[in-house]
Design a protein around this nucleic acid. Structure first.
Lengths: 214, 214
DNA sequence: TAATCAAATGGACAATCGTCCATTTATACC
DNA sequence: GGTATAAATGGACGATTGTCCATTTGATTA
């Protein structure tokens, strides 16, 4: 067991990160100052330099932390998914549009970092949600479906992957700009409509067809 | 003709706005200070207060200006489009993904403002690209197609509108995060694949079918 | 040309920024 | 319980922020 010293230390480190994320979500990056952060964390001014060596490093760590939480949530869900490609894709869609990851706090944080991504390469690195891992999971599922359908179009699976991820991105933007009128069920329906149009015997308006018609 | 005085005045006003946009595109919002702006514009410190009453108002005006340019570009293109709904939709897609509006500078600016939108209502107001005007243009086109197809699904046109705009949003995000590997033709192909899947006799992989098969 | 006045200048100003370190606090070890 | 030491404190510091206004510039009008 970790000593109380180290335990407190880690706890304070985390408190600083959470304070940054709270502030970014509520006030935006430009208003997230050192004073704002330490006030929210209830800690002293010097802690940022002590734990992270400076404000920039702390903000970067907070971004990384938030990104990690997104993937953790998604992978938890995926662990529950079945083996069929359509089930896996459905899980990703439901996960990406579900309350656990798509909520006001996360969206605010996400787009705040995105806005700075272009100019801070360290931020850009983790800001790419749909990173290689997620992209490959979706791609392999679509590839299996395309093969199963005897599709001749070699680009179909790749395009479907790219398209689905872009569509989900767009839904997030919609939530960002209209959190009040955003309709989670509608977003899911639209996404499945897109999938059902491209792969009719694998998806329906309500989700995946668990037993594909062969 | 306007006097040289007023002419200079307007010219300086514009120079300030362009300086803000250049700085936001290159360095981001957080590094766009008064000093940065006036240096780029080659004007004196007091000009911001004189013309806009303060930095915040100037930044807001710059955002509004950028947004206006986006719509102007899109409407120019739309004026050249034919009357058929599929032609109008194709024009919107080609416009939104074309070089004139989708380029590094615009994407940087766009997302920089988006990142602050949640916390600055004035910015949120113009930050919503796909505003009512654009949305209605797309919706009316899809409604005509749905009627033409005798679609029974009342939500189909609305969902297609929402989905297409979300998909285009996602393509912009892709460009933001991977400007080097982004492929404009691929983005168009994917978009038309989505349209072709939902409305097979109106769109193909390469774009709209001008004469719909009835 | 001289007078007029809007436009533009650039520095003074207080406020706030992030950094850093001398000091204090509290845990861990002897 | 006393000592060692890592963790935490909070204020000093120079740099930079945005605002504002007394002054200068230069186009316009008499």
């Amino acid at each position: 067991m970790a000593g109380k010293r180290e335990q407190n230390r880690e706890q304070n480190r985390l408190a600083l990160i959470e304070a940054v994320l709270d502030s970014v979500a509520e006030k935006g990056i430009s208003e997230t100052s050192v004073s704002e952060i330490i006030q929210r964390a209830g800690l002293s001014r010097g802690m940022i330099h002590l734990h992270f060596g400076g404000k920039d490093n702390l903000v970067q760590a907070a971004g990384h932390h938030s990104s990690q939480e997104y993937y953790d949530g998604l992978e938890d869900l995926l662990a529950q998914a079945g083996d069929s490609p359509q089930e896996r894709i459905e899980m990703i869609v439901r996960g990406d549009l579900g309350e656990r990851v798509l909520n006001q706090r996360n969206v605010s944080i996400w787009y705040a970092f995105r806005g700075e991504a272009r100019n801070r390469s360290a931020i850009a690195a983790f800001s790419d949600t749909r990173d290689a891992r997620l992209r490959n999971m979706v791609l392999s599922a679509f590839t299996r479906i395309a093969r199963d359908m005897n599709m001749t179009d070699a680009e179909a699976a790749r395009d479907a992957t790219h398209g689905l991820l872009a569509l989900l991105e767009g839904m997030w933007t919609d939530y960002l700009l209209h959190p009040d009128r955003f309709d989670r069920d509608e977003a899911m329906r639209i996404t499945f409509r897109f999938l059902a149009a491209m792969f009719p015997s694998y998806f329906t308006l309500k989700g995946a067809v668990v037993q594909p018609q062969t």
